[in-house]
Design a protein around this nucleic acid. Structure first.
Lengths: 238, 238
DNA sequence: AAATCACAGTTGTATGATAACATGGCAACA
DNA sequence: TGTTGCCATGTTATCATACAACTGTGATTT
């Protein structure tokens, strides 16, 4: 609990800074589950902010399940596993292997989603997939319209799984992946990439239409491998 | 924005109630992305609390990515998809198909984790897996020690993937699954179940030891199917 | 010895004040 | 006309203080 804050800092709210400082203490093991936090007053003085700000930070951490507090006693570090909330630290994602890990996680979900979609898709699902594909066909590679159609295609697949949690998680992870790619900057695509991407999508659609779970799974895996290559990842595993 | 709060409510913090009230407004579409929230003062008077409490609620919603605020202008409803936080509603999980969906999601992650573990496991990982298995062997079926060892076995597998996001997600989902099973109440196990469970675990360990990703994947899938049956789920798919 | 009470410490909430920032109106000026 | 600069107003961000509710402890009383 050594960090000091400058008033100069004009960016995130002070409560955000305090919250992430405490979060870091927990993550780094300097505060362990069950430990009692310093009093709000003590935190306020050590961070050089008002008790009010500390309370906003604590409210945030409490909502994330990282700590719990009881009136008259104090605040305590909670058991992380019990947290009903999942967060991803955007800063940590800048590192290459973190990105690769997240990409891998998305792959696991997306491959399974493709298989489930092949088994459960309705005609309406197929229509949605087809329209997304034609939209991607007409839009120039890398354009906003293209990206939106691409997202829509993958969203339609996971929607066809009839599994809302799968949908929620996959969209969540995909968003984080997309953010990282955009943050990393310039993607320049050739027409070559466009046609191979479209081909991969077509193969996925065919498999899902045929109701062939295995084929859908493999087609999706191929597509993800291709996407990884296009983003600059080297893929060693299946 | 019509809800009123009683002072009588002695339970969660007022800020929690305010936050979930606003959340509900957003979820029900009475507040749409881009809309401006009432001022903090107005919220304070309509909810009958101090502005301080409103600010703690807003801090929470902001950390969840549901709203964003700018000094001098106001607070606005954010685009939900951009939220860097994932939550699971515990109440919704009580429904059977919701539980099945979550179980399915866990399966997707766990199967992939087993495959990756087979490829990347170190000797230390194998040691951890073995000790978890022996611990499960000595503990009576269904006892706390047994459950802890079971959790430890699965945790060791995902740790062997060297993918921290996979670990984070899988532990998160597994915890929610475990909570639901415990909440559903009485599980009574026979010695029969114990031995089959142990056998399934053994097969997984063998495959991971051999470094055979495919075998690990299949063994894990079998184990999950078995677990589903033991919990009372009917499994139709592979 | 056990129950009760007083008290200090802590969190929960309320209130008022000030600083920082955004916006629109208005006057002065070119 | 149109542009600039200033000012008033409204909002969030933060600070400071006070009080209520609750907890734990130790002294006091029974």
């Amino acid at each position: 609990m050594t960090l000091k804050l400058d008033k100069v800092n004009r960016g995130p709210h002070l409560s955000t800074l305090v919250a992430s400082s405490i979060s870091r203490e927990i993550a780094h093991g300097r505060l362990n589950p069950g430990d009692q936090l310093p009093t709000e007053q003590a935190l306020a003085t050590t961070f050089g902010v008002s008790r009010n700000v500390v309370r906003e930070a604590i409210a945030r951490l409490r909502s994330e399940g990282r700590i719990w507090s009881q009136q008259g006693r104090g605040a305590f570090v909670a058991n992380v596993a019990n947290s009903p909330v999942l967060t991803i630290d955007h800063d940590a994602l800048q590192q290459a292997d973190a990105f690769k890990s997240l990409f891998e996680l998305r792959g696991a979900l997306e491959v399974k989603a493709a298989a489930l979609a092949a088994e459960r898709r309705t005609d309406a699902d197929l229509e949605a997939l087809k329209s997304a594909l034609t939209a991607m066909n007409t839009a120039p590679y890398g354009s906003v319209a293209w990206l939106k159609a691409d997202l829509e295609f993958h969203r339609a697949i996971v929607a066809a799984t009839r599994n809302s949690y799968m949908e929620q998680f996959l969209i969540f992870v995909s968003e984080r992946v997309r953010e990282s790619i955009l943050a990393a900057g310039d993607q320049q695509g050739s027409d070559d990439m466009a046609s191979t991407t479209l081909g991969e999508h077509n193969r996925i659609l065919d498999a899902i239409t045929a109701g062939d779970a295995n084929a859908a799974q493999e087609a999706m895996q191929l597509h993800l491998n291709g996407a990884a290559r296009r983003v600059g990842l080297r893929i060693d595993d299946l």
